[in-house]
Simulated assay, not measured.
Amino acid sequence: MRWVRDYKPQPQVQAWYRQALWITLGGNIFLVTIKALAAYLSGSVALYADAANSASDVVYSLLMVFGLWLAQRPPDLTHPQGHSRFEPLVGLMVTLSMTFAGFEAARASLQRFLIGGLAIEPGLPTLVLLFSAGVKAGMYLAITHLAVKLHSPTLQTTAQDNLSDVLTSTAAFVGAAGSKLVHPLLDPIAGFLVALWIFRAAFRAGRENLNYLTGAGASEELRHRIVEAAQSVPGVLRVHHLMTDYAGPRLVADLHINVDGSTPLVESHRICDEVIARVEAIPEVDRAYVHIEPDDWTD
């Protein structure tokens, strides 16, 4: 009797994950250090807000390292289907850290707004923000490339967070530069915009990870792809039942297929294996379970 699901180590996959983690963690620690120092020296609240965002990214990175390490552990008797649900669980913890960063950015911006703003001398803040935007753009491209290879929703979310950071750094740059050239209130206004971007990213990440944890099903488009993959196997007459739900960040698909009732058992078993192989070849699907029934049997 098999007590746990089959597991085959994938060294290349693990190497790609390590690369993504080093890029994310190293880049965010570097950026929060230079932003915090520049914010302290310049007094820019927009830069402070952006530094708070980068601080949440460091926490995000550390939790992501821990979560992906747990999620990639092989199945065992305590978790016979694997540990993939740890990934979205850590994602919710990350969402809380992002929300705190947004609150801190909004609080600092409100305080600066109530005192009428402060003109920030151009130079260090603007240079740091432009540099940060460039680094984040590079991180976005690198993580997106790895996310596509790994079909990882977590890395896709991280890549989108990097893209949002490009926009927030740009907003903070406009605020810091505009506080001197246009009006001092532009600096806290830009800080508010940064906070809104953080809250938006936290909301989207929280909603996505809750779907993974609560067993949400596949989209209609993905369900059609699963049915088409199964029905492309010679011998499959139709799929009359499909149920999907997320087990962590990837799907489990349960299918009932109809075949000719006179098909020999050995051939039926081959058809079943081929359906499983084609469905599990879909990047979003982790595993598939197939039940074979004779033609016209729809229970």
Rank of each mutant, 00 (worst) to 15 (best):
P234V: 08
G217Q: 10
D245P: 01
A247L: 14
A253K: 03
H256M: 01
D273W: 04
N258H: 10
R250D: 07
I276M: 13
V233M: 04
I271Q: 05
V236R: 11
H224E: 15
E220F: 02
H256L: 06
T263F: 01
S232V: 01
L255N: 09
G235V: 01
G206Q: 03
V266N: 07
A230P: 01
A277C: 00
Y212D: 10
Q231R: 02
D273G: 05
L265V: 13
T214I: 14
L255P: 01
H240C: 02
H241V: 10
A205R: 08
V279W: 09
N211R: 14
L251F: 08
V279Q: 06
P234H: 13
C272R: 01
L265P: 00
M243R: 15
R278L: 06
L237P: 00
R223G: 04
G206T: 02
L213P: 01
V279F: 13
V266K: 13
L213V: 05
L255G: 03
R207K: 14
V252R: 11
E228K: 15
P234Q: 04
R225E: 15
C272E: 03
D245M: 12
N209K: 01
V227Q: 13
R278N: 04
M243K: 15
L251Q: 09
V239G: 04
E280Y: 14
G217F: 07
V279D: 07
V252A: 08
T263K: 13
E221Y: 13
Q231L: 01
L255D: 06
T244P: 10
A281H: 07
A229R: 04
L237A: 06
A205I: 10
R223C: 08
D254R: 15
G217V: 03
N211F: 11
V259A: 02
E208L: 07
P234E: 08
E208A: 08
D254A: 09
D245G: 05
T214K: 11
V233R: 09
R278I: 00
V275N: 12
V236H: 10
R278T: 03
V266T: 12
A205K: 01
L237E: 14
R225F: 12
V233I: 09
G215D: 03
